[in-house]
Each structure stands twice: as C-alpha cells, then as structure tokens.
C-alpha cells in the first residue's frame, strides 16, 4: 500500500499515457497518414490543397517560412538576452 502511495503519480501517468496511446493509434488507423492541415480539412469537409513539406528532414519539417522563422528566432534570442541582463542588474 505504501509502495502504491509512493508511486501513484507515475502509475497514474503511465495509465493515462497507455490509454491516450491506444486512442491515438486507433484514430490514426481510422484516418490514415495525413498532415495536420489535411486532417483538419478532412474533418471539416474542406477541400484539401495538400500539405507543404518542402525541406523535410526525416519527416520533420517547418510550418511557415524558413527565413522568417530564423529571423524571429534571432529577435527572440536578442530579446531574451536583453531581458536577462536587465533583470540581473
């Protein structure tokens, strides 16, 4: 009983993960392999233009424009540094 009390968090986490995994796999089998936007279009009945997967690396790809993404990341990094320095002082 004590062991259960000590590990109830991880047991609950594991149970949720198993249930969620079974549900996700069943849904995936029902819909077939689709990208996010295709899946949304299929669910809502909109005509699908297909997913853009330009520059995909091992199935990973970037949503949106790559150059803008990098630009925004640089701006955010600079902002983080500025906030860190400001709040350190």
């Amino acid at each position: 009983m004590t062991a259960f009390k000590e590990h109830r968090g991880i047991i609950l986490f594991g149970l949720i993960a198993i249930i969620v995994l079974i549900g996700a796999y069943a849904a995936y089998q029902a819909t077939g392999p689709m990208g996010i936007e295709e899946r949304f279009n299929a669910a809502t009945g909109l005509s699908s233009g297909g997913e853009e997967e330009e520059g995909s690396i091992a199935g990973f790809f970037l949503e949106g424009n790559m150059l803008s993404y990098l630009l925004v990341l640089v701006i955010l990094a600079v902002a983080c540094f500025a906030v860190y320095r400001h709040n350190q002082g």
Partner: peptide, 22 residues
C-alpha cells in the same frame, strides 16, 4: 521570455508522428 523563445521554436516544427503534429 525564455519559454516564449523555446515554445515558438518548437511550435513551428512538424513532427512525423501519427501523420504529423507539433
């Protein structure tokens, strides 16, 4: 500020799991 940068960076990357999610 740091979690904004991290969340933004990951939010845009489509992971090839169950067809594609982020």
């Amino acid at each position: 500020a740091f979690v904004t940068a991290a969340a933004f960076a990951l939010f845009q990357i489509n992971i090839p799991l169950f067809g594609g999610v982020h």
